[in-house]
Design a binder for these strands. Structure first.
Lengths: 262, 262
DNA sequence: GAGTGGTCTAGACCACTGT
DNA sequence: CAGTGGTCTAGACCACTCC
């Protein structure tokens, strides 16, 4: 005999996938469902929890349970790196003409609102080993919340690290009021004599931490994409590192690999 | 006043992060925790559910609750594409010398066990629009489960699609017993006169479907990485598509973008 | 204020694990 | 068998949303 909450979840899942319930639709109240299935309310709630953890429904306190509306934003992640490098040495007037400045995520500034904060920090074990520097090295830490102008919830949380000594020659890089960096990260690194050789991006997925769930307004049971971008200069040194947290099923990372012709 | 289950979750979280409880350790039984916090067992279970959804603990029926042991495998995703293209035209004897055949995920065959299945299928709406062909077009569908020889749970679920007519000239491509393809996908496409121009990879994260959770032996509340790889030939036609599902926090996708020198 | 989901209780019984 | 987590009940009261 199947478990009661599974049978309830199965039937509701079929209704959603089959189109009886469409994205945005409200489900019957929990006590009605309990009555309809001949079970107690907590058992119905267990079934709804399963559907929530699958990303099929969204619970809204005081309003009801709703079929979730998927929405996805595409980040053209790696295609931007060469483009940004090409622009990094151009004079500011020309850069202004060729398009909007971007900001580590491949998004355009025009669509977005930033909240930035600067902090001097000592490298912890994780950061130190990524940069290959001793624990405790002075770093510049920048954190942003990236938000669509039209929406209330942040779209991305970004924490970026630089070794303080390598960027100290350009005071702009230590000045919070100069955020976001004109020309982007690569342009600012160029101003202190750094040329990038390659960029590595590491992608994992996991449930959000409580802090992330709150900041990104994610329902429990959802997933985040954790992207760590590491920039290497031409001396094979790590010069910049960004940790980006994105809402998992609302974001699509797009990587394009061009291949040489035979 | 903080909610009871949150206070319990907070305290246990502190114990785990602070090192009082280490990876692999067993937590006290649920009724002991209930007694210790002066709450009912269901309330304690609610707290444990929160920790489980954060990936911090693992529930094992009949044994107890345990602090989760993180383990990550790195897939060098895009760095492999050019390498595979370079090898695709070489004779079989040379390919055998240059390394193990790979299989769409960037993993080496040596470490892995495959279970493959072939099926002829008609393109559904999703697949048809990705290939730019009419719905109902005859496709070849291959599905694998990729498993580490040493482990019981599959590591990846892969479903790969080809348009039947474009590969029909090479009978090996329709023969299940020839799996995995010697030389990899690009080599086999070369045998029917196809040269690839670029590969796109789209990455999202979401909770597993019930089927995925069962197949990959994922605990509820975890995340999967969904990767869709699309291969374009030199006529800008989609010739192959793979959907790969990976356990989210046990897998790290690594993308490397080399940059041209100034 | 009516309707909704959120939290919690106290206990019953079942299912799985290891001895 | 003892110990563990899994499922479920029937109901209470709180908190949020919207009219």
């Amino acid at each position: 005999m199947a478990k009661a909450y599974e049978r309830i979840a199965d039937e509701l899942r079929r209704s959603i996938r089959g189109g009886d319930l469409n994205p945005g639709d409200q489900l019957p109240a929990e006590d009605r469902l309990a009555e309809r299935f001949g079970r107690s309310v907590p058992t119905v709630r267990e079934a709804l929890r399963v559907l929530q953890s699958e990303g099929l429904i969204e619970k809204r306190h005081g309003r009801g349970n709703f079929v979730r509306r998927p929405r996805t934003t595409v980040l053209r992640t790696n295609a931007r790196h060469q483009w940004e490098k090409d622009r990094a040495r151009e004079p500011e007037e020309r850069r202004a003409l060729t398009g909007a400045t971007e900001h580590d995520t491949g998004l355009e500034v025009d669509d977005l609102v930033f909240q930035a904060a600067y902090r001097e920090a000592k490298a912890d074990e994780d950061i130190a080993s990524a940069f290959g520097v001793p624990v405790g090295t002075a770093m510049v830490e920048r954190t942003y919340r990236t938000r669509y102008a039209a929406e209330s919830a942040p779209f991305a949380m970004v924490t970026s690290y630089l070794v303080r000594d390598t960027v100290a020659q350009n005071p702009d890089l230590l000045d919070e009021s100069k955020e976001p960096w004109p020309g982007g990260t690569q342009n600012q690194l160029h101003s202190v004599g750094i040329e990038l050789d390659r960029i590595e991006e590491r992608v994992t997925a996991r449930p959000p931490s409580p802090e992330e769930a709150e900041e990104l307004e994610l329902p429990p049971g959802s997933s985040v994409i954790a992207l760590r971008k590491t920039s290497y200069d031409t001396h094979d040194r790590v010069v910049e590192l960004s940790d980006v947290t994105l809402p998992g099923d609302r974001t699509e990372l797009l990587f394009t690999t061009p291949l040489e012709r035979w």
